[in-house]
């Protein structure tokens, strides 16, 4: 092959060829078409979606394993609403801390969604502030989780290998799964701060190349960050349901 054929561009498209068919045929035609299977989806966003799919499998395996060992152990399972109760003025309130944590995390999804919206409006300041608020919500979530862990470990004597209340798997699955989720939140918080800083400085308005990747940044990154954050949030809902309510 000679170089010239490489650089040849295609003939101008006829209008009829450009119009995409409707319905199912159109759907299939889009998918099968050249260049991109998901039209108007940037690379980073596609990558995040696929990563989240893979991560979903990780969390599913964790949660299914939790259910399996909960059924395989012969020792009775501790009652979550007692274990996770907090006393205010001598009165134990079941699940109060978790309720607050869940509320905070869900609110942070709200601020994140707003950050994405303001990002696309090129409102640099508001976006950055909202992202920092999201990150602070996330950090306080992790902080409360640390508090809860401390309470379980120090006050109640729960250990990964055993606890005074019942089945040893209670502690092991709890620390493992909430730990893995908390790790996700922490990573998210760190990246929220990093991206917020870039937004604040206006890196995305001036398309400043990234320090490591030397790829020019843009506001899509805020949205990708948002996808991750909502996912971590959604996972929490499942953890909450099967750990605290079952």
């Amino acid at each position: 092959m000679t170089q010239s054929t490489m650089t040849e561009s295609g003939p101008t498209p006829s209008p009829s060829a450009l119009s995409r068919p409707d319905g199912m045929t159109g759907f299939v035609a889009d998918w099968g078409s050249d260049q991109r299977a998901f039209k108007n989806v940037p690379w980073g966003k596609a990558m995040m979606w696929i990563f989240l799919l893979s991560d979903t499998f990780i969390f599913s395996c964790f949660l299914l394993s939790y259910m399996t060992v909960r059924m395989s152990t012969t020792v009775p399972w501790p009652n979550p609403s007692e274990v996770f109760a907090l006393s205010f003025g001598g009165e134990p309130i079941p699940l109060i801390l978790i309720a607050i944590m869940t509320f905070i995390l869900i609110s942070s999804s709200g601020t994140m969604a707003m950050a994405v919206m303001f990002g696309y409006k090129r409102d640099r300041k508001t976006t950055a502030i909202l992202m920092i608020v999201t990150a602070l919500f996330g950090a306080s979530f992790v902080g409360m989780q640390a508090f809860e862990w401390t309470k379980l470990i120090v006050d109640e004597g729960v250990r990964p290998w055993g606890n005074p209340m019942g089945a040893a798997q209670f502690g092991s699955t709890f620390f493992m799964i909430t730990g893995f989720h908390g790790f996700h939140v922490s990573i998210g918080v760190i990246f929220l701060f990093i991206v917020a800083r870039k937004v604040w400085r206006g890196d995305f308005d001036r398309a400043v190349p990234g320090f490591f990747t030397s790829r020019k940044g843009n506001y899509e990154i805020v949205e990708i960050m948002g996808l991750y954050w909502h996912f971590v949030d959604l996972v929490w809902v499942f953890i909450f349901a099967v750990f605290y309510l079952w």
Partner: peptide
């Protein structure tokens, strides 16, 4: 349907 029309490259 659209893409494989003769010679046409989007």
């Amino acid at each position: 349907a659209a893409q494989d029309q003769v010679n046409f490259v989007p």
